[in-house]
Nucleic acid binder design. Structure first.
Lengths: 229, 229
DNA sequence: ACACTATAAATTGTTCACAATTTTTGTTAC
DNA sequence: GTAACAAAAATTGTGAACAATTTATAGTGT
């Protein structure tokens, strides 16, 4: 049973995209991937199909797969969807979060601060995304959790494509404000903070920006990110 | 190129599930399907993988695929997600709908009334779902549209599983009220009507109901539904 | 009759060779 | 030098045989 291999490939590529090591448009040749992961082409094929379903990979018949290149309209749609979904998640968290949950959130904030203090940009990006995933999990709604994860992933791609260098990261004090509102069990404030936060991220995107040239796969997959859920 | 075949299988099964001809839990044997669709097992396999990604099919390793059996918690999650997503869609429709769009909606309502007048239950179910899909399309947000379609599909499954015979259909006058609010460009009212409507549907579900026995695949796929987008 | 085991059948999973298609490379003419 | 065409290489898609696993069947003993 080589099912494990497939999910490993999927996770690995998702990480690489989230960390912005695999820029939009990168060709994902089947041979290259099966070489890299030392496995059969069939497994690579399934992994790519899964990633295509997540819409982070585009698949053109007879031309293979490549990292998706969201359009500006896609980007707007994604962020509107995030506002709809993550605000509901936020409401759920306010209602259901235990003290332990809030402690976990605060610990996560501390990590974010630390990563930024160390100028560890990749870690900062990962933790920033992780914050949203963490909230999604605490919302205790499997459907919304999955959609939110999908969308944070696609957001990474979008930010990598259109983001200006100045404002590509979530301001961690915005995250903190959200946690504060949750801890205070102030539903309205939490929703407002989340909505504002997502709008700020979106504002940091330059939709007129020219797309950077698509890099080759090379060994961009090499440096693996540490944690995963 | 047999890619068309795969989507054909997917659509066909989705229709059968939406029409509640394929009840939750039905085994979807690969052989049986490839016989039925007169095609290779490989294509059936891909189709099933796609359906699994949509979460309307469950796939257990070495035991094959079957129509998903959502739990009561799944059902609650799905409906909460629908409220979050479809209310945002509703807002978009109010803002962007042209007069032609509204005419299309009214025409759809007329069809719904007619189907119910004729006691054509399968058509009524299909049209009821179609109304929500139509709105999703008019929201002009590809992300939300896809999620909404996903969820209406899963709702069909849930209603088929837990729904009481009395309240399994959307009351068409609720649909009408939504359209009226949209036509009046009254955003707040449209949102309220949609939210209420979805809550009503959810209330028509008996979460303590015992699950009906899982029927065999047989030729449940036989009678094909007419339209598809 | 029931429980247990062994065998057979059916079903799913994997691999690999070959077919179809696209992309690259090389050649020739202008 | 470049455009057009042809051949070659690389890449993706497909199908069918084979392997592994699960489910059904038959047999044996108590």
């Amino acid at each position: 049973m080589e099912r494990a291999k497939e999910t490993q490939i999927v996770e690995h590529i998702l990480d690489a995209i989230a960390d912005q090591r695999l820029p939009a448009g990168t060709r994902l040749g089947e041979q290259a991937l099966s070489d890299h992961f030392a496995c059969n082409r069939t497994q690579v094929r399934r992994a790519l199909a899964t990633l295509t379903a997540y819409q982070v990979v585009e698949h053109v018949p007879n031309r293979g797969a490549s990292v998706a290149t969201p359009t500006a309209q896609d980007a707007r749609d994604v962020f509107q969807a995030r506002r709809a979904i993550e605000s509901t998640i936020c409401r759920n968290v306010v209602r259901h979060a235990t003290e332990a949950d809030i402690a976990v959130l605060r610990a996560h904030l501390a990590q974010e601060v630390q990563a930024k203090g160390h100028r560890d940009r990749p870690a900062a990006i990962r933790l920033s995304r992780g914050f949203h995933d963490l909230l999604a999990r605490m919302g205790r709604n499997a459907v919304l959790e999955r959609y939110a994860q999908d969308l944070t992933m696609r957001s990474s791609l979008i930010i990598g494509l259109y983001g200006t260098q100045a404002r590509t990261l979530c301001a961690e004090d915005e995250h903190e404000r959200i946690v504060d509102a949750i801890a205070a069990r102030n539903e309205a404030r939490a929703l407002r903070e989340m909505d504002q936060h997502l709008r700020h991220i979106e504002q940091g995107i330059d939709f007129d920006g020219t797309r950077p040239p698509t890099g080759a796969l090379s060994s961009l997959l090499g440096t693996q990110s540490t944690e995963r859920r």
